[in-house]
Design a protein around this nucleic acid. Structure first.
Length: 266
DNA sequence: ACACGACCCTGTTCGC
DNA sequence: TGCGAACAGGGTCGTG
């Protein structure tokens, strides 16, 4: 997309989680994508029209690229699928298809440069791979919190971009019980989370993400970080920590599954 | 200010 | 085989 013009935008329903902005297709048509960015789990495309396109994939959303030399769809487009909601035809022939069965995703347009004023972006915590995320900043954000550390790390206002899988993996690597109150973790242990979070995310990115069911990268390739899971989706299986011998448990916290080893995570 | 549950929606898997 | 319940990668909103 970067550097290319959206030759045609097809918007096939009124919205996803929320209604699309007024005249979205018209506002996208003819615009050149000057830069593609990411903030937390939001994809941001700065357009030469003075607007920024914000995209969130929710749980089941995906954007597939076709009509380029990338992946399996060499020089051709796949047949349209159910739940293809937005299609962007780029000037060089690529097609970007946004598909989202559950429609928990979102798209919006807002004036470029006003990131901090957008309700979905304001108040987000630091990027875990950026300089603003540090041992002192995380320890400060967790201090005094009465919520479980699992819930705190999923909260995008504390650190931006961790999802359920990666929080489970991080807490196992850190030897922290997901039920432990965030405010009752020592400075040292809170600080130790920082390099672990960076490592888990970096490793997952290098592996192309986690393909649990049907997740694919934009070129259609499967991720393979799921083969590196230590706890996620391993209920009843042995803990893989050297010499631990515990059994992975599944509990529900804030409506989400937490997988952990009760023996080595305290 | 904070913490919790309900809710948004569709598809897949699991137990009976 | 059929059917309902449970569950899924996320996040907001209202309530207490």
């Amino acid at each position: 997309m970067a550097g290319h013009v959206i030759a045609r935008a097809e918007v096939r329903r009124e919205g996803l989680r929320w209604p699309f902005p007024d005249r979205m297709a018209e506002r996208l048509t003819g615009a050149r994508v000057e830069r593609l960015r990411r903030r937390s789990k939001y994809i941001l495309a700065d357009l030469d029209s003075g607007e920024t396109l914000l995209i969130h994939l929710g749980m089941s959303g995906r954007m597939l690229i076709s009509g380029t030399s990338l992946g399996a769809f060499h020089h051709e487009h796949p047949t349209p699928q159910k739940h293809d909601h937005v299609v962007l035809e780029m000037d060089a022939g690529a097609r970007i298809t946004y598909n989202d069965a559950r429609r928990f995703g979102a798209m919006d347009l807002f004036p470029t440069g006003d990131d901090a004023a957008h309700p979905l972006l304001a108040g987000l915590g630091p990027e875990p791979l950026g300089n603003a995320f540090s041992e002192t900043s995380l320890a400060a954000a967790l201090a005094g919190k009465n919520t479980p550390i699992k819930t705190a790390l999923l909260d995008q206002h504390i650190v931006a971009g961790l999802g359920n899988i990666y929080v489970c993996e991080v807490l196992h690597r850190a030897g922290l019980n997901p039920k432990r109150k965030a405010g009752r973790i020592s400075q040292a242990r809170a600080g130790a989370l920082v390099p672990i979070i960076r490592d888990v995310l970096s490793e997952a990115i290098a592996s192309g993400g986690s393909s649990l069911r049907d997740y694919r990268q934009a070129d259609g390739e499967l991720g393979y970080f799921q083969h590196a899971f230590q706890v996620y989706d391993r209920e009843g299986a042995p803990c893989l920590r050297e010499g631990c011998g515990g059994t992975i448990r599944r509990i529900v916290q804030s409506g989400r599954s937490s997988f952990y080893c009760p023996k080595c995570q305290r």
